[in-house]
């Protein structure tokens, strides 16, 4: 009980929660990107992958519930810590110099909230497939395709091509993944700091790893809507 109290009530404990959940979410965004990049291997690859995920049944819901609690804890600790931080500095200086503090490090709560808003939209858009939010007038739930082994499944390839052909949807996507990159460019290095896994040797290595992977993520994710806007996938759908 004392351990739980220390974890949830102390400043350092909440940062551990922030760091561990951040690490889980980071692992998810890497996996999600690798999965999504299969769109460039053609309709068969991505549809087979999507069918595999959808056919995992209870496991899928277990992962979804775990993700929901991880996101919940991440946002809860962010809000609590930010409120405490604001209260600790009630009077500002006449000049905000932010000596030594990077832009990304100072705007984590802002980038985080835009990303959270995007995730909500993204789930309604492609997971729940609410017709009203996709701005194309088409109903994604009706898209069906037949895999080479004869299985009839949801046509995720078509959904991605149709979905990202809307400029506004693609623009929001690119903005969100850019902010995600900014968030992780600081967050990856910072989470190892919060979890106490840094020293004078590992600090520069982990910080560099964070910056590089943040660029990989933004390029990987943004390449999909940009390629589709430039015409990728139209041929395959015909």
């Amino acid at each position: 009980m004392k351990l739980l109290y220390r974890l949830f009530r102390s400043s350092l404990g909440r940062k551990y929660i922030m760091g561990v959940t951040g690490l889980c979410l980071f692992a998810f965004v890497v996996g999600h990107m690798v999965g999504n990049l299969q769109v460039f291997l053609g309709p068969e690859a991505i549809n087979r992958y999507a069918h595999f995920l959808q056919s995992t049944g209870e496991l899928l819901w277990l992962v979804r519930l775990a993700m929901l609690s991880i996101v919940g804890l991440h946002i809860w600790s962010a809000v609590v810590l930010t409120l405490e931080n604001r209260a600790a500095r009630p009077v500002r200086y006449t000049q905000d110099v932010f000596y030594g503090a990077s832009y990304a490090s100072r705007t984590m709560i802002g980038s985080g909230f835009v990303i959270a808003a995007f995730v909500l939209f993204h789930l309604l858009h492609y997971t729940v497939q609410v017709k009203g939010v996709n701005l194309t007038g088409q109903d994604f739930t009706t898209f069906e395709t037949t895999l080479k082994n004869g299985t009839v499944t949801h046509d995720v390839f078509k959904m991605m091509v149709v979905g990202f052909s809307n400029v506004w949807v693609s623009l929001f996507y690119v903005v969100a993944v850019s902010l995600l990159s900014l968030h992780l460019g600081h967050g990856i290095g910072a989470l190892f700091q919060s979890l106490g896994l840094k020293n004078d040797v590992w600090t520069p290595r982990l910080d560099r790893f964070g910056k590089v992977i943040a660029w990989v993520l933004v390029i990987g994710y943004a390449s999909i809507p940009i390629a589709i806007l430039l015409g990728y996938g139209k041929e395959a759908l015909k």
Binding site: N85, S105, Q193
Partner: peptide, 25 residues
């Protein structure tokens, strides 16, 4: 009532004794 660390690095940048951020880790 001190705030929480968000790893901005301002502290180490102004420290007159140049205490590094590794101490926090």
């Amino acid at each position: 009532g001190f705030g929480n660390c968000t790893v901005t690095g301002s502290c180490a940048a102004v420290c007159p004794k140049e205490i590094p951020l590794d101490m926090i880790a």
